[in-house]
Design a protein around this nucleic acid. Structure first.
Lengths: 343, 343
DNA sequence: GACATGAATGTGACCGGTCACAACCGCAGT
DNA sequence: ACTGCGGTTGTGACCGGTCACATTCATGTC
C-alpha cells in the first residue's frame, strides 16, 4: 500500500524523516544513493518513502540545484512533418535521460512575440533547442540570452550562428544538389524550383544547392517560385508552372509542396512523370503512397532531434565532451514521380 | 541598457532591493502590482529592475506558490495529424495565458513506462492534458495520481472516465455514422471499415458509429479490417480488400489509412471512385490535394486542444467555472473519392 | 588509555520567491 | 495630547529540496 488514498498534500522529505525517525538529510542521502548510510537505516527510510508515497518535488529540486532537467524546443510550427519529427527525436532521447520536454511555438509576424517566447522558455531554467529553419527560428536563436544553454538546428553549415553556440544541421544544400542532379541526369534541360520560405533574407540552403547543380551543368537557371509550407502553396505554384509547356522537371522545397504541385499538374492534364517530373524533399510518411509515388530526399529529422539533445545534454551536465557538430546525411529516394522527359 | 552583458548569475529580488534601497518585499510588491507602494518607490524599483535585467525566477515562483503555470500534454504520438494538431491547439491557448507547455510521449508496449511518464509529468507541478484516443492514453489517464488537475481528450462521450474528471471529446461515433450513411446513400450495398487501433479493449467509437449506420440500413456488417495508424497499415488492409470484387465502399479510420488504401486499390487496378469509393477521417491538410481528393470527416483538433486547455485553466485558477464538456462538431467533406457504385 | 580515523548522522544556511504579520508613518477625530 | 486608522514598508518563516560543515560513534593503533 504505497498510496494512502486521501493524502492531503504530498509528503516531503521531512515527513518521511519523521516517519522513519531520522533527519531530513538522511532521507536526502537515501534518495540520492549516497553510500554512507547504514543498511538498516536505509531500509527504514525506504519503507517510509513507500508508505507515504513520497515523490521528490521536481520544482524544489530545480531551485536548490540551480538547474532543471528540462529542455524546451522552440519552433515555428509543430504540425509539419520535419518539425514534428525533430520534436519527436528530442523528446525520445530526453525521456530516456529523464528530462522533461517543453514546446514553445514562435508566432510568425510579431518579433516581440518571438522574443517574449524565448524569454519565457529561458526562464524555465533548462536548456533550449531552437529550430532555426525559418526566419522566426533564426530570430529566436539570436534572442536567446547569454548564459542560457542552447543548441540550434540550422539549415546550412555555411555560416554558423553569430556566436560559438553548438548547432546541428542536415546538409540541405548537398541534398538539393543531388536531387537536382538526379533530374538533370534523366535528361531534363533544366529544373524548376518551388521554394519554401527561406531561413534568412538571403537564399536558403536548398535553393542554393539547386542553383549550383544547374550552374555546374550549364543549364538555364529559372527563377524559383515562392511557395509557402503547405500543399496549398504548392498547388498555387504548380498552376503557374503547368501553364508553361517548357517545364519538364520540378523540384519542390518539401513533400507537401510537391503534393500540391502534383495535384495542379493533374488538373492541368499534364501527366507525371510522362510530361513532367516532380521531386520533393523530406520523405514524409505519405510520400511513398501517393500516386505517382514521390521521388524525394530523405532527411533524418528524428536523428537530428536526438543529436541536438545529446549535444545539449553534454553542455548541461558537463560530463560528456561536446561532440563535433553532428550531420545527418540526406539520401535520395527515387520513386515514380521522376523519369525521362518525353521529348 | 537593460542587459549588462557579463552578468554572473541572474539578479534576484534581493539584488534589486539592494540596488533600489528598499526591502525585498517591496520589490515583490512592485512585481505583482500591489497597490500600496508609493509612486516614487515604485519607479525607483522599476529602474533597478531594468538596470539589473531582473527576471522573476519561474522555478522559485512555482515552489513558493505551490503551483506552476504549466501544462503537460501526454500523448502516444506527436507526428500524426490529429495528435499534433491537438498539441498545437493546447500550446496556442496556453501561450496566450502565459503558461508553458510540456510534452510527454507514451511509449507503447510497456505499461510501466507509461506510468513512469505520467508520474514525471505529474511531478512537474502543473496540469495535465491526456490524449486518450488509444490504449496508452487511456492507461495514462487512469494512472494520473489523485489530486493532479487533468483533462482527458476522449473518443466517445458514451462512458466517461472512471472518476469525475473533466474531459472533452469529438463525437467520433456520430462522425463515423454520418460518413457511413453518406456512402450508403450513394447506393452502396454495404461499407467496409479499416479500423485504427481502438482506445479500449472494447470497440472504438468510430467502429461503433459505422456499425450502427449499417444496422439501421439493414446492410451487411462485414468484419472491420484492423489497420495501424499510418499509410503502411492502410496499404496492407487495402490489398486484402482489393482482392474482393464485392467491395465497393471503404471507410477508413483516418486519412493516412485511406491514403494507403487508395494506393493499394490503384496497384490492384481498381479505379476510385469508379469501382470503389473510399472515405477517410480527420481531414488532414494533404487530403484535399490527393488524386482523387479524399472524402473525409473534418474534425477540429486544434479547437479540441484549445477547449481542453480552457477547461484545465479553469480548474487550475479556480476562477472561471468549469464549462460543460465542450464538443466539437465533425463535418463531412465530400470530395472526389466517393461516388455511386458502377454496378 | 589516549588518539587518530572513517563511517553514519544531524544542524544550519541557502536557492528565490511568497505569505502572514508587525511596525512605522502622517493625519484626522475627540 | 491621545487614539484610531489607512497607506507604506520591513521582518521572519516557509515552500522542499540541497550543500557545507559539525557532531557522534565505533574501531584500530600506539
Amino acid at each position: 500500500m504505497n498510496v494512502t488514498g486521501h493524502n492531503r498534500s504530498p509528503a516531503s522529505i521531512r515527513d518521511v524523516a519523521a516517519a522513519a525517525g531520522v533527519s531530513y538529510q538522511t532521507v536526502s542521502r537515501v534518495i540520492n544513493g549516497h553510500p554512507s548510510v547504514k543498511q538498516s537505516t536505509r531500509e527504514r527510510v525506504l519503507a517510509a518513502i513507500d508508505e507515504l508515497g513520497f515523490r521528490r518535488n521536481a520544482t524544489a529540486l530545480a531551485l536548490a540545484r540551480g538547474r532543471s532537467r528540462a529542455v524546451t524546443v522552440l519552433t515555428a510550427n509543430t504540425t509539419h512533418y520535419g518539425y514534428a519529427s525533430i520534436l519527436q527525436g528530442v523528446e525520445e532521447s530526453a525521456r530516456s535521460a529523464a528530462y522533461s520536454v517543453g514546446v514553445g511555438v514562435l508566432e510568425s509576424a510579431d518579433p516581440a512575440a518571438v522574443t517574449a517566447e524565448v524569454q519565457r522558455a529561458a526562464d524555465a531554467g533548462g536548456g533550449l533547442v531552437v529550430i532555426a529553419y525559418d526566419p522566426e527560428g533564426v530570430q529566436a536563436l539570436e534572442a536567446v540570452p547569454a548564459g542560457v544553454p542552447v543548441v540550434g538546428i540550422v539549415e546550412t553549415p555555411a555560416s554558423p550562428p553569430t556566436d560559438n553556440r553548438p548547432w546541428v544541421w542536415t546538409d540541405d544544400r548537398q541534398a538539393a544538389y543531388e536531387a537536382t542532379r538526379h533530374l538533370l541526369s534523366l535528361g531534363h534541360e533544366t529544373v524548376h524550383y518551388v521554394a519554401i520560405p527561406s531561413s534568412t533574407r538571403r537564399t536558403g540552403a536548398r535553393t542554393s544547392g539547386w542553383r549550383q547543380a544547374l550552374k555546374e551543368a550549364g543549364a538555364a537557371q529559372p527563377r524559383p517560385v515562392q511557395g509557402s509550407w503547405g500543399p496549398a502553396g504548392g498547388h498555387a505554384a504548380g498552376r503557374k508552372l503547368a501553364r508553361d509547356p517548357s517545364v519538364t522537371a520540378i523540384l519542390c522545397g518539401n513533400d507537401d509542396l510537391a503534393l500540391g504541385v502534383l495535384r495542379a499538374l493533374h488538373e492541368a492534364g499534364r501527366s507525371v512523370p510522362g510530361e513532367v517530373s516532380v521531386a520533393g524533399f523530406d520523405d514524409a510518411p505519405h510520400s511513398a503512397y501517393l500516386t505517382p509515388s514521390l521521388t524525394t530526399v530523405r532527411l533524418d529529422f528524428t536523428g537530428l532531434g536526438r543529436a541536438a539533445f545529446a549535444l545539449l545534454h553534454g553542455v548541461l551536465e558537463e560530463s560528456a565532451p561536446i561532440a563535433p557538430h553532428p550531420v545527418s546525411v540526406p539520401e535520395l529516394v527515387v520513386r515514380e514521380s521522376t523519369g525521362r522527359p518525353s521529348a
